[in-house]
């Protein structure tokens, strides 16, 4: 008896998660892109935890502009790659990097004062969970299954077949 095809499998779930995370990153990037007054200054200046001095150093004049630009660009890159499903491994790594920085800037450690955060957390917060989700996306690329990569790969497969 032939196996009935699963209606919704692991690949579908991961692809959905990938699109949602891409969506989240992209919107955060676009909102900043269209708001000339946006700056990461307050977020960095109020940083807590072991890397506090590093983040505070980023707020100095001349540096913070670059930090803002890079952050915005990185957010959009992650957003585009994950939403579209192409170069998603690169996107996932950049995403992991960004989320690690966000986590470390305001780590939810019980001995630190929580500023600039919403919600209540004890060591684990949404940034860290989203970071783990990006690891999964890195390990289980789905662009080939549901994403722009499928379109490009189709070409390659066709070429391969023709060559045979």
């Amino acid at each position: 008896m032939a196996k009935t095809k699963k209606m919704w499998g692991l690949k579908d779930s991961v692809a959905l998660m990938r699109i949602f995370i891409g969506w989240h990153f992209l919107y955060e990037g676009i909102i900043k892109l269209y708001n000339p007054d946006w700056t990461s200054f307050g977020y960095l200046a109020s940083a807590q935890g072991p890397l506090k001095s590093v983040f505070t150093a980023l707020t100095s004049e001349g540096v913070v502009g670059w930090v803002d630009g890079l952050n915005m660009a990185a957010l959009i890159v992650v957003g585009l790659t994950l939403t579209l499903g192409i170069f998603e491994k690169l996107g996932a790594i950049v995403g992991i990097g960004l989320l690690a920085l966000y986590y470390l800037a305001h780590p939810p450690f019980p001995w630190l004062m929580q500023v600039n955060v919403e919600g209540s957390y004890w060591f684990i917060n949404k940034n860290l969970i989203e970071l783990v989700a990006c690891i999964i996306i890195y390990q289980l690329p789905t662009g080939n299954y549901f994403g722009l990569r499928r379109v490009f790969n189709k070409n390659k497969e066709e070429i391969k077949i023709e060559n045979l």
């Binding site: 699109i19 891409g22 969506w23 992209l26 919107y27 990037g29 676009i30 909102i31 892109l33 269209y34 957003g79 585009l80 939403t83 579209l84 499903g85 299954y145 549901f146 994403g147 722009l148 990569r149 499928r150 379109v151 189709k154």
Partner: peptide, 17 residues
């Protein structure tokens, strides 16, 4: 399945902008 991301990107871009 390949191009579904494009309208999503368009939508998000439009909403954010």
């Amino acid at each position: 399945k390949g191009l579904a991301g494009l309208p999503i990107v368009g939508g998000i871009w439009w909403a954010g902008a």
